[in-house]
Structures are given as C-alpha cells and as structure tokens.
Write a protein that binds this DNA or RNA. Structure first.
Lengths: 236, 236
DNA sequence: ATTAAAGTTTAGGCAAGACTAAATATGAAT
DNA sequence: ATTCATATTTAGTCTTGCCTAAACTTTAAT
C-alpha cells in the first residue's frame, strides 16, 4: 500500500541516490525523513519485501526499477504543484515546499497529467529543478553548471539552486540573487574558492562564499544547446 | 490533532446536521464514513473530549461552534478544489468528488485563500452547492438565480420567469408551477442538466427539463433553520 | 408494565508506524 | 589480530484507528 509514510521514504531514498550515493545508508534515510534509525530499519525491511528496494542488511539500500518509478512520480507531483503555486497562486519560491509536500501525496494520475498540461508541460520547477514527465523520466533541459565551475568572464544566468532549503533561499534573497539573475565570475580566489562576482549594472564587485557558489546552477545567459537527461535504462 | 480521519468524521457530521437532524446518530455517522458503529463510538468520545462536539451517550452528537468551524473549512476546501478541477483542469463535474476528497485535507490556510482568489471567489461549486467563505460562513447567494444554477437542498421560491411567452407560461401551468411556488432541487443529472425537484407537501420527486429550469428565476424561500448561514458570533 | 428489536457502548484484538534501550555487526586504528 | 567507535538491527512499547463479539440502553409494540 502506498501510504504517505511509504511515499516519503521512497522519495528520501531517491534524493540520496541522485545525490550520488551508490547504496544509501539507514542513518541517512532516517535523517531525511526525520525518524530514528530503528524505525527506518523496520521500514526498509518492509519496503524490501514489497519489491520497492533491495535491502542488504548492514550495507544500505538501493531502489529497484519499480521503486524508482514510484519515487519519480512523487517527485513529479511535488514539482508540478510547486509550479502551480508560484505561477498561478502567486506564492514566492521559498514558501511552496511545505505545501507541495502535502499536495504530492494526492494520488490521481489523471489529476497530475491534467495539471501538467494546464501548466504547459514545464521542464523546470520554481527552484530550477528538473520535472519528470508522465513516463517517469526527466525531461531534457538546457545545459547547466555549478557557479563554482563556470568559466570566468562570461555572462551567466542563475537557473537553479542545489539545496532548496528555506534558510538558503532566504540567504539568496539577502544577497539579491534569484532565478534569472545575471552575473559574471571575475576571479576565483585560490584561498578558499570564493568568487568575485560582477553584476551587469553595478560597478562594485561582490565576494561570494564558496558555500553559495557550490549551490547555484547557472547557464550562459545566451541560448545554449540542449542536453538529455537519464533514459529509461539509466534508472533501473 | 486534525488527522484526515478526524476531518472526515467532522465533515460527515456537518453534512448530516445540515440535512436537518438536530442530533446526529452514531450509526448514521458510521455509515457516512464507511466505518462500524463501534469504531465510530470510540471516535465520538474522543472528538467530544477535544471540544469539537457534544456527545450525549446513547443520544447522538452535535457539533460545537469550534467543531462547526473546522467542518465548514473542510467543506470550503472541498468545494473550491472541485471548482478548480472543473473550471481549469477540464474535468467533468461527476469526476471530481474523489479527487477533492483528497485535496481537501491539505491544510494550508494561505493556500486555500489564494485558490479562492484565483478562482474569482466563486459562490457555488460545480454541483450547485454553496461554498463557505474564508470566515467559515456560507456566502449569500445572489437575490435571484436561475433554477439551473441554484444550490441544492435549499428551499427555493419562484420569483420570476425569463421568457414570459404564453406557451411557456401555459406549460408551467401544466406542471403546477407559478410565482410563489416553493421547491427544492434535490439532484442535477449530469446527462442533460435535468433537475430532480421536490415540492414541500409531496413525496414524489419531479423531473424538470433543463429548458424549464433555465427560464425560472428563484430565490431562497425564507431563511430556513437547518441551513442557517452561521454568523460570526455563532462561531466564536 | 413487559419485552423484543434496534441502537450504542464496552471489551479485547490487530496493523501501521513511531519510539527507547539493548544487542550485534562492521570497519578503521592500532 | 584485536579493539573500539560507529552503524544497524532486534526487542519491547506506545498511539491511532480500525475490527468483531458481547453487553448494555432505549424505544416501540404489545
């Protein structure tokens, strides 16, 4: 049965897997779903029995194809609702996460497909994250790089953030950075990777901490070629 | 705590109360929420302790102001979502109930108020039922409405006809309808919009063609005690 | 006034999902 | 190879919300 709790576990595991871990640890999952390792361990056993993941005791967990498909659907619902909240109800991008966390558990497939169409089949949510399509695969998006890895002396545009936590988003607000902000990396300091940033209409150069630069997706401010994201076989 | 289960009980009780029962019986509630009388009894005790209703053992239940306010909010959410599903996602009015049953439990007040504004503060949902406003009270319906657009389960009085041609008026005579006739819309058929009409002193329900319903102006017959539109002070 | 039917509550259980505390496995450092 | 800190699982409870079966009230009919 796909309860809210089960959906939250699957979603958490997908996130951790996408962040690069081959096998995901019990403790990491427990932290993500704000539960204890003990509770999580029990849940993982159950999810394993039901075929959503492989649980190798003491060595973490990996989603099966079936589990991954379910988790991608939840991600899809979450991100489509975020689009709706920002584009049509006028919320700010840092206000929508909690609400979308609830909306994402409303199960109707018909509902979400119609919402998708209503929104015009968006590719990115308000945080710049890729939205899976109805087939459970990521839609292709424009190329993007982390700000810390972007070339210097080239005008860039902010197209996404890596960690959409409220604190970080608010910090961006303080810095005057949002999706669509244009900037150019002038210099990268060897000391700690801080960046000298120049904004189009300002003379002053701003110093940006690496912790921020590592979490900003940017693209060339002029159109760039498209790249394709994971195909079916990548997701098994 | 306002769990989904609790919300469903409160909603069921409000529905039964609005349908006219002074005190609502355990069995009736059990039927509405598809549970057993035993489970329901236990739940009613709990809801009583938490101040949402008065539970007089063996003699049914009545919502407190506080409970009524909560239930009205759920009704509001349900009906607003139904508007959204029909008006913007293109669902038919007979497909939206189940989906709205899920959406109604998403709690954010901000969300629902913005949705309300987005929809243009509608007064009636796609089934012709009245939508409570942000203050937890039913919105007053325009002084006169077409019968086809009037809310259900509310006694109406015929106050005018749109096309006063002889043929139409003679037809009304055959049907036994004239200015001042009282009636209640019980059901609106999705097939062609025909209406099931109930007259005060008759058992039989009459089927009225949409061509007639579209030409009759109606108004609330008189503030009826069952569907008193609760005032602010009633809801403390 | 008595009694039977109908309605309601109590008693005793079960499943899901969480917790703490205790036991056990792993892996890194000696 | 042994030891120890850390990660994980097991054991035992708790709460919520549901169930069935049994006991008890109320009400309506004799």
């Amino acid at each position: 049965m796909l309860t809210v709790s089960v959906e939250n576990y699957l979603k958490a595991i997908l996130h951790l897997q996408v962040e690069g871990e081959e096998r995901v640890s019990t403790t990491a999952i427990a932290q993500k779903v704000a539960s204890t390792p003990a509770s999580t361990s029990a849940m993982l056993t159950k999810l394993g029995e039901r075929g959503w993941l492989e649980h190798q005791p003491y060595h973490g967990v990996r989603l099966t194809k079936k589990g991954q498909r379910v988790a991608m659907d939840i991600l899809r619902r979450h991100r489509l609702w975020e689009c709706f909240l920002v584009d049509h109800l006028g919320f700010e991008w840092d206000q929508v996460h909690e609400i979308a966390e609830e909306l994402e558990h409303v199960g109707s497939v018909e509902l979400i497909n119609r919402l998708d169409a209503f929104l015009g089949f968006p590719k990115l949510d308000p945080h710049g994250d890729v939205i899976p399509g109805a087939n459970g695969r990521f839609r292709s998006v424009a190329a993007r790089t982390l700000l810390t890895e972007a070339p210097r002396n080239l005008e860039l545009v902010v197209v996404g953030v890596v960690d959409g936590g409220d604190a970080f988003l608010r910090h961006l607000g303080v810095l005057g950075i949002q999706l669509g902000t244009r900037m150019t990396v002038m210099e990268r300091l060897s000391f700690d990777g801080s960046l000298h940033i120049k904004y189009p209409d300002e003379e002053e150069v701003q110093l940006l901490a690496p912790s921020v630069g590592q979490r900003l997706w940017v693209d060339q401010s002029s159109p760039s070629p498209e790249i394709v994201f994971p195909e079916e076989e990548d997701l098994q």
